[in-house]
Design a protein around this nucleic acid. Structure first.
Length: 806
RNA sequence: GCCAAAGUGGCGGAACUGGUAGACGCGCUGGACUCAAAAUCCAGUGGGCGCAAGCUCGUGUGGGUUCGAGUCCCACCUUUGGUACCA
């Protein structure tokens, strides 16, 4: 019998589907394991081999855990709202629902043909009203808690697309040739900043890659500083600045406020007013990119006003510059040019004084010194001196002094901003809010609030979504009076913020998730996906989860216990796969040529899961050969009947087998699939070479292999007479005694250079090793006539003689 | 600029807490089988010197610690990812 992968795959995929082999039970007696993929956006271009990497990894873990006796939850669904389907609708008039359905069908087929053991009965789709009913429900909870509010926000407005772009989308759109401008717009905003501290602190509780945690920490950007009030000359109000370096207050030589600062125009004295107005206007016209991007050259304008340095009593000029951000701190800063590179540049450009207050290794007129590991100088007045103090002490001393004088207050700031949550699009979850004629707002309680059918998908020219054109949908009346519906929809992130909860209880019409099921399944034990979601998706998701935790909907503080980022698979040219480069390896193509088992195995054999690595189509042939070898363990070349013997494997092979069980188990737990596969190859090579057809050995191979190459394993398992699926078989245990070597090779070095080796029993003592090592012929000649200074023996490893050269 | 990770044969990559560098696979070379090919099997495969035994060099570069360094420390170079005036 020949190994016919395509027939096998069809057969077993059909069997798994009809027998519901991988349906998770809600039997709460068994230990659970929840293993989740970042669910995909079903795009029109289909899946390529890169997409399958993470899915293969989770599937191996899911199958492995089932063999280990766990009740496994391994679901799949679709993050199906989103711009591409909407753009296609605008161009062609095709309803995004149809595009989405078509793409979902194609994605599902590809995933099924990979033999992934998803519980398809739990499939969800974020565009399904039964799903987004609960997305809307969560939004209303946020609204009730005051975590969703309306605000006029300066947004990135794309002229051509008539939509607001996220900051992270701007570059991409500009690269595509669109125009993006800043424009204030009425937006729904979620108060994620209220959770900044918890989002930061509770990172310590999860088992995530350190770099992802670090990225989130940077994104949240907590800083400790002081808000200091500077008295203004000729004005009754104070100017409040935020600084993390109160220790440099004595070195402050001027202040800068942002162009949008409420005091900006008021501070301009008559002679400066025209210039100030012009500067503010110019800043307004610049896009975010122009202001924060590569434009390093500092610009600014003097207001003509002065403020008093509370430490020195000096009058400091107040400037306006767009390098100061309105949305961070107080929108105003104290400039210490000697010890801040931006202030230094600005001071140099506009001829402002530079004063050293931190002992610097060089002249601060020539170069800025922004180190913290030096001591304060020139920093004293009648009341306080911080001269000679280090950063931490000086910080505390100044902060306390300022607070006691009522001139300042310690303050923690975050870079994290509130989350602009509305989009002017059709293809998203409608925001379930009604606006009444009297200006009040009320939630729509009849959920789901579904999308109406529309004729055209273009946004309105005013920037409202196409929903604003559908009068029947838009206007209504209830006991509170006539209302107009909110026309904004939610961003694509919304649906993916909580989908992992719905998999637990996808059909529930009474609740988002049943509490007892939630308690059993949460949290997600292993979450695998691309590193591109390290910040946004994972941060938004954690935010919603914490809100749900406060509401008592979920029982865990964090949603994802263990996170793992798979590395990208590059094209054969070593470049990122992309249509424009023409180096995309479509999944269906390799599936047809080599079969699901070979693709699965090869994806994992390529290298460590977390690493970026190029695809090489030739390499997969080695995997095909391996699978054929496994096949021939049961079906020798040209055999009509399978061959299997009930003899015990030889001692050598038995040892090999137990070593393999150990290595494959340990590597699988640690997601080191490449070395697990290599170990299986070693075992199969030895069995083949020895002509071993022992049932014990072959069945062990099949169970070890079953998470990786499930179709082949199932088929041969059946050939060997089993009627039950191999997926329910218990994972083999290794015998520690057999997995250990009883004869080891000891290397012998002289002065660290390898000179020979000998065989020794495993428990051999150091003295015996040294004795034996001396006698090794190739070693003896190097010891001849030399004086041995030191003898080192590492049990089971090596002996090293340190000799003095004569 | 800053933060993080990584540099090992022709290629993808192995190497436990410092202990025989190159497992496994691709590719390549030679051989067996065959009319021939495919498939399969066997042997070899880091560089240099040597008929050979063997010697010697070798894990980005330069130093260091150690009996012993791919692994630890210092400096540098390169690549990738993240971030970008956050005071």
């Amino acid at each position: 019998m020949k190994y016919d992968f395509s027939a096998l795959e069809k057969k077993w995929q059909a069997r798994w589907a009809s027998e519901q082999t991988f349906a998770s039970s809600d039997d709460q007696e068994k230990p659970k394991y929840y293993v989740l993929d970042m669910f995909p956006y079903p795009s029109g271009s289909g899946l390529h081999v890169g997409h399958l990497e993470g899915y293969t990894a989770t599937d191996i873990v899911a199958r492995y855990k089932r063999c280990r006796g766990h009740n496994v939850l391994h679901p799949m669904g679709w993050d199906a709202f989103g711009l591409p389907a909407e753009q296609f609708a605008i161009k062609t008039g095709t309803h995004p629902r149809l595009t989405t359905e078509k793409n979902v069908t194609s994605f599902r087929e590809t995933l099924k043909s990979m033999g992934f053991s998803y519980d398809w009965s739990r499939e969800i789709n974020t565009t399904d009203p039964n799903y987004f009913k609960w997305t809307q429900w969560i939004f209303l909870k946020l609204y009730e808690k005051g975590l969703a509010y309306i605000s006029e926000v300066d947004v990135n407005w794309c002229e051509e697309l008539k939509v607001v772009l996220a900051n992270e989308e701007v570059d991409e759109k500009l690269a595509d040739g669109y125009t993006v401008v800043r424009r204030p717009l009425r937006q729904w905003v979620l108060k994620i900043t209220a959770y900044a501290e918890r989002l930061l602190e509770e990172l310590d509780e999860v088992d995530w890659p350190e770099n992802v945690k670090q990225m989130q920490r940077n994104w949240i950007g907590r800083s400790e500083g002081v808000e200091i009030d500077f008295e203004l000359r000729c004005h009754r109000t104070n100017l409040r600045v935020y600084t993390t370096r109160p220790d440099t207050l004595f070195g402050t030589t001027y202040l800068v406020i942002s162009p949008e600062h409420p005091m900006a125009e008021k501070l301009a004295i008559a002679q400066q007013l025209v210039e100030v107005k012009r500067y503010i206007e110019q800043a307004r016209l610049k896009t975010e990119l122009e202001r924060t991007g590569l434009q390093k050259d500092k610009t600014g304008v003097f207001t003509g006003s002065y403020a008093i340095n509370p430490a020195t009593g000096e009058a400091l000029p107040v400037w306006i510059s767009d390098f100061v951000l309105t949305s961070y701190g107080t929108g105003a800063i104290m400039s210490v040019p000697a010890h801040d590179s931006r202030d230094w540049e600005f001071a140099k450009k506009f001829g402002l004084p530079i004063r050293e207050v931190i002992k610097s290794p060089h002249d601060v007129e020539e170069e800025v010194f922004d180190g913290k590991e030096s001591l304060c100088v020139n920093s004293s007045n009648d009341e306080i001196s911080i001269d000679g103090l280090d950063f931490k002490t000086a910080f505390e001393r100044m902060a306390t002094w300022l607070e006691s004088k009522g001139k300042g207050k310690r303050k923690v700031n975050y870079k994290l901003r509130d989350w602009v949550f509305s989009r002017q699009r059709y293809w998203g979850e409608p925001i379930p809010i009604k606006h009444y004629d009297d200006g009040s707002m009320r939630p729509e309680t009849a959920l789901p609030l579904t999308l109406p059918e529309v004729e055209a998908y273009h946004p309105t020219s005013t920037g409202e979504s196409p929903l604003a054109n559908i009068e029947e949908w838009l206007y209504g009346e209830d006991e509170h009076g006539a209302f107009r519906r909110e026309t904004n929809t939610m961003p694509q992130w919304a649906g993916s913020c909580w989908y992992y909860l719905r998999f637990i209880d996808p059909e529930n019409s009474e609740a988002l998730v049943d509490p007892s099921r939630e308690k059993y399944w949460m949290n997600v034990d292993l979450y695998i996906g691309g590193a591109e979601h390290a910040v946004l998706h994972l941060l938004y998701s954690r935010f919603w989860h914490k809100v749900l935790y406060d509401l008592g909907v979920v029982s865990t503080k964090e949603p994802f216990q263990r996170l793992f980022n798979q590395g990208m698979i590059l094209g054969e040219d070593g470049e990122k796969m992309s249509k424009s480069r023409g180096n995309v390896i479509p999944a269906d193509h390799v599936l047809n040529s080599y079969g699901a088992d070979a693709v699965r195995l090869y994806e994992m054999f390529l290298g460590p899961l977390e690493q970026v690595k190029p695809w090489n189509t030739h390499g997969i042939e080695g995997i095909s050969r391996f699978l054929n070898k496994v096949w021939r363990l049961v079906w020798p070349e040209n055999a009509e009947e399978p061959r299997v013997s009930d003899d015990k494997p030889s001692d050598t092979l038995l040892k090999r087998m137990h070593k393999a069980i150990k290595k494959v188990s340990e590597d699988t737990e640690q997601l080191k699939f490449n070395t697990a596969i290599s170990e299986m190859m070693v075992l199969v090579n030895e069995l083949t070479r020895a002509g071993c057809y022992s049932r014990e050995a072959v069945e062990t191979v099949l169970v070890l292999l079953s998470p990786f190459a499930p179709h082949l394993a199932e088929e041969l398992w059946q050939t060997l007479g089993h009627s039950e699926s191999i997926s329910g078989t218990a994972w083999p245990e290794f015998d520690a005694k057999l997995a250990a070597d009883d004869v080891v090779t000891i290397a012998v070095q002289v002065n660290g250079k390898l000179r020979g080796a000998f065989e020794a029993p495993a428990g051999c003592s150091k003295e015996e090793m040294i004795e034996a090592a001396r006698k090794v012929e190739s070693v003896a000649k190097f010891l001849e006539g030399q004086s041995i200074v030191k003898e080192i023996a590492v049990p089971g490893k090596l002996v090293n003689f340190a000799v003095k050269l004569q």
